[in-house]
Design a protein around this nucleic acid. Structure first.
Length: 838
DNA sequence: ACCTCCCGCCATGCT
DNA sequence: AGCATGGCGGGAGGT
């Protein structure tokens, strides 16, 4: 079945392989190192279990195994893990190794938790693939293989993939199989997300929350209630909560799971989380706020309170280091991209989606994150088919939604981070030149008008500049198409269903149909062309700098197709809803869930399930190559880089062990900010930059970490900052520092950010961020660097090398106007402390 | 002591 | 029934 894994081949990167032996030194370092190498084996330590099991694996795997065996470090790791996998057959070797090691050694060798962190894993993962993969090539990713290579459980890979999927960096082909799109679509995706976020009025929500917090500070008791009200109201209106997964045109969603399950999941949460950054001026988002908005204040509140009690002061926050993005046209607009008839009917345009999702703008409804489905359908019809089951379409959102409530968490953050990294890379790469721009844009992008969602598109141009990274590179192509469409879902069913259904529903429908929103491949192309035009315009401007901007790739119809999957299966899906709703509750233990459930019921209908479909992919593909070249130009050849050197480069980074959070290179920086309420208050709504402070403790969810990491890796997010909320406490004057706030790493990053500005975003990464990982890999266009860099930062490299480059992100802080807003916040934060300070 | 988040069980849902 | 997917709790590990 599934396994297409076998496809191993497809994946270029890996295969390649030769990985050098990597070796990583110690754990901490390992991170870097790990990345470099292919990863495979080295990196993650642990668990082989699932993964290894019987899957087929490719020769590559074997190689890895062998390599690992050879290299001590690897061995150790493996041993620790234990495993590695038997699959390869190597297991034995592993075992032997283990044996060899003494207990101590063994232990040492074992990866520490940090080593096992999702962030690292993300780096590794990203390292293996080029930022701008050559569409022509097979960019398939076999989850099993990856898991094996990375020595991680498959489960972990899902987290990563989900986040990447949310950014459309990856799309599902079939079971166990994903296609790597890299950053080609990133800009579009981000633009779309931004638009959606605007539509949802996240910025407003953030503002409100901050205000509340501020107020609360004054009165603690009151505040909550107030906030709650507010928030609730927001969400409540609809009851709906969530939005759906935003799909990009071009990208289809094949993942059955996506469709089906609840997707409150990480995918959706990840997108939302990103939206928060894109929308907020400062681009700093505290977990607290994120939780409130994404999960629902109610839930959050609880958390907050609890935490609150203890600590007031710190709040973890994250800064967006990724490129600034202008909203895709879709934003308000129309749906764009997909004009598909089907879609039309079913889904509303993006607008709709957005609207639906958010319900009214006025209120955001984010409520529960959970629900949404994420689906993205990729354009390519072929893929749609996904074979495997996964694809099933829909599940009711409701149930789903209900469940999740909380998850949003850390995972998201991590993932988000990862995404960022990628973005950065992309951006950077593509336009080195742009850096400056980037810098500006950085997150803040003064320029970029967050506010104007509608304009997003237009913005793009400008923004594009701003956006440094990926987007640009992504190329214009994406631009146009970029418009994501979101579909609102029908109330009744699962939200997504709408979109999906159409497609799916239409199952019958030709492929095109499938991607409801999206255009089918063909359509996509068409769209592209249009878009292209548009995009071109936009991008052209923006990209101008980046000459490449438009790469041929953009046009590319579909990226690649694996071919393999021809199946057309469409997901049938729909069914899913059954349990979800019901069961969920039972299962859920958490309050949230319960709450959610209630919501869900309500919301269900509400959920909008829109998906943004990135058209870009197609284009992207083509672009990639180009981009890659650009990006990496500095370093490697486009494709190769990734695998090869880039990564390594990254490695060097040093990442010291920094926490994942910090990405030096990227902008992300984790900050811990203390924000005085006042300050917050001061902060205008719009931006929200302020960290928000009020509640001291964040509510993070567990998953947030994931997102954060991911994003960080991507370079999108800066590490979190903790903001102290203490009202009274340090009011901190706002400063700009914020940026600096970041701890070492962060600092660096921030600094970097600035730096990033400079040249190429991608490159920014200092050092090679790229994670390219290993050289082994292939030629894929990779842009690993960026990623790597990201990763590096991610890891926090000490600053060293990596940082310098910082992609545009950094800027954002300061950079744009946002910066202004941002500045405040950050500053404050800074004051507080960078880290926790308090 | 607290918080983050890794691990992996097991529910979910599709085939 | 089997498997892919992913929600989520427990508890390790870090600070």
């Amino acid at each position: 079945m599934e396994n297409e894994k076998e496809n191993l081949f497809f994946e270029p990167h890996r295969r390649g392989l030769l990985k050098t032996p990597l070796k990583e030194s110690t754990a901490a370092n390992i991170l870097l190192t790990e990345i470099q190498p292919d990863f495979g084996p080295l990196t993650t330590p642990t668990k082989p279990k699932e993964i290894s099991q019987g899957e087929p694996w490719t020769p590559t795997a074997n190689l890895k195994m062998l390599i690992s065996a050879v290299s001590p470090e690897i061995r150790n790791r493996d041993q620790k893990r234990g495993l590695f996998d038997s699959r390869n057959g190597l297991p034995e070797a592993k075992d032997c190794l283990h044996e060899h090691l003494s207990g101590d050694e063994y232990e040492k060798s074992q990866p520490s938790r940090k080593e096992k962190s999702l962030g690292l894993l993300c780096h590794k993962f990203l390292a293996r693939y080029p930022n701008y993969p050559n569409p022509a090539v097979n960019n398939d990713i076999c989850l099993d293989e990856v898991a094996e290579e990375l020595n991680v459980e498959r489960r972990r890979i899902y987290d990563i993939v989900n986040v990447l999927e949310s950014l459309h960096m990856v799309s599902r082909l079939a079971k166990n199989r994903y296609t790597w799109h890299g950053r080609h679509n990133l800009n579009k995706t981000l633009g779309t997300l931004k638009s959606v976020g605007e539509e949802n009025k996240y910025a407003e929500q953030i503002t409100m929350i901050k205000k509340k917090e501020y107020e609360q500070e004054f009165d603690f008791g009151k505040t909550y209630s107030i906030e709650d009200h507010i928030i609730k109201s927001n969400t409540g209106q609809n009851g709906h909560p969530d939005m759906c997964f935003v799909e990009l045109p071009g990208v289809e969603f094949r993942a059955a799971s996506v469709n089906s399950r609840k997707d409150k999941s990480l995918r959706v949460m990840s997108q939302k989380f990103v939206m928060l950054f894109l929308v907020s001026t400062p681009q700093i988002v505290s977990l607290e706020i994120a939780a409130k908005i994404l999960i629902g204040e109610d839930h959050v509140e609880d958390l907050d309170r609890s935490k609150f009690k203890k600590e007031r002061g710190r709040k973890p926050a994250f800064k967006w280091t990724g490129p600034e993005i202008s909203p895709s046209p879709s934003g308000r607009g129309p749906v764009l991209p997909l004009p598909r008839s089907d879609l039309e009917a079913k889904r509303p345009s993006k607008d709709n989606c957005a609207k639906n999702l958010f319900s009214t703008r006025g209120k955001p409804n984010f409520t529960r994150h959970p629900s949404l489905i994420k689906l993205v359908k990729s354009i390519e019809s072929d893929r749609r088919k996904i074979n495997s089951a996964p694809s099933s379409p829909i599940k009711t959102s409701k149930a789903e939604s209900s469940q999740n409530s909380a998850p949003f968490p850390s995972k998201m953050a991590q993932l988000a981070a990862i995404c960022k990294m990628q973005l950065e890379e992309q951006s950077s790469e593509p336009r080195k030149k742009g850096k400056v721009q980037l810098a500006r844009s950085g997150q803040c992008n003064p320029v970029a008008p967050l506010d104007t969602p509608a304009n997003a598109e237009l913005d793009l141009t400008a923004p594009s500049l701003i956006q440094p990274l990926g987007v640009v590179p992504l190329i214009p192509s994406p631009l146009s198409p970029a418009v994501p469409v979101i579909l609102p879902q029908a109330p009744s069913g699962p939200s997504y269903a709408i979109y999906l259904q159409p497609a799916q529903a239409q199952t019958v429908t030709p492929p095109q149909g499938l991607s409801p929103t999206v255009c089918p491949t063909p359509s996509c192309k068409a769209t592209r062309s249009k878009e292209a035009a548009d995009a071109t315009t936009e991008k052209a401007a923006s990209d101008a700098k980046s000459s490449a901007s438009t790469r041929p790739g953009t046009l590319l119809p579909v990226p690649e197709r694996p071919g393999a999957t021809n199946r057309d299966k469409e997901p049938a899906g729909e069914r899913g809803s059954k349990r979800t709703s019901l069961l969920e509750d039972s299962g859920s233990k958490k309050k949230f869930k319960e709450d959610l459930k209630g919501l869900e019921n309500v919301s269900t209908t509400l959920f909008p399930s829109g998906y943004l479909i990135p058209l870009t992919q197609c284009s992207s593909l083509g672009a990639e190559s180009i981009l890659s070249s650009k990006e990496n130009s500095s370093t490697l050849s486009p494709n190769h880089r990734i695998y090869g050197s880039p990564i390594t480069g990254v490695i060097p980074v040093t990442s010291s062990e920094l926490t994942a959070v910090n990405f030096p290179s990227f902008h992300v920086t984790p900050l811990k900010l203390m924000v005085s309420p006042t300050s917050v208050a001061a902060v205008p709504v719009g931006n929200s930059s302020a960290l928000t402070s009020s509640h001291p403790v964040p509510v993070q969810n567990p998953s947030s970490a994931i997102v954060n990491f991911t994003l960080q890796h991507l370079g999108l997010l800066s590490p979190s900052v903790q903001v102290s909320t203490s009202p009274g406490a340090v009011p901190v004057s706002p400063r700009i520092e914020a940026v600096s706030v970041v701890p070492d790493n962060a600092g660096t990053q921030q600094g970097k950010a600035t730096r990033y500005d400079s040249p190429v975003p991608g490159h920014n990464q200092p050092n090679g961020q790229s994670v390219a990982v290993t050289g082994t890999q292939q030629p894929v266009p990779v842009t690993p660097k960026g990623s790597q860099s990201v990763a590096e930062s991610f890891f926090r490299t000490p600053g060293g090398p990596v940082k310098p480059t910082g992609p545009s992100y950094g800027d954002f802080d300061g950079a744009n106007k946002t910066s202004v807003g941002t500045l405040f916040v950050p500053q404050r934060k800074l004051e507080v402390s960078t880290e926790d300070v308090h």
